[in-house]
Amino acid sequence: METLFRPDMVWLIVCAALATYATRFGGYVLITRMKRIPPRMEAALSAVPAAVLTTLVVPAAVTGGIDMAFAILVALVAGMRTGTMAMLAIGWVAVMVFRQFVTG
């Protein structure tokens, strides 16, 4: 029978899981230890979603090639008026069309 799990690999995965869980719980532990949250930190926290998620988008648009940049731009325009699912569909069509007819 084929091997399901190798001990060294399982250890590595368990350590990766613990490191990841620490990041998911760590910020909560740190922030709830503070007596009160200063206004500037409040402003900083409220910027977290846009600030972090942007770093997952812009580098992809800049370094992912002209086809990726095109699809993201089209989806951005679409996203100003529609919801997420429509953005995904329109962006996907854009990249497929672009690759078919422009970059080959």
């Binding site: 979603p49 846009a50 998620l53 942007t54 997952l56 988008v57 992809a60 648009a61 992912g64 990726m68 699809a71 993201i72 989806a75 951005l76 996203g79 919801g83 997420t84 953005m87 995904l88 962006g91 996907w92 854009a94 990249v95 497929m96 690759r99």
Partner: peptide, 14 residues
């Protein structure tokens, strides 16, 4: 064309 889905999804969240 599935490589564009995640960046676009994250942009929707932004």
């Amino acid at each position: 064309g599935i490589d564009v889905l995640l960046p676009i999804y994250f942009m929707g969240l932004v």
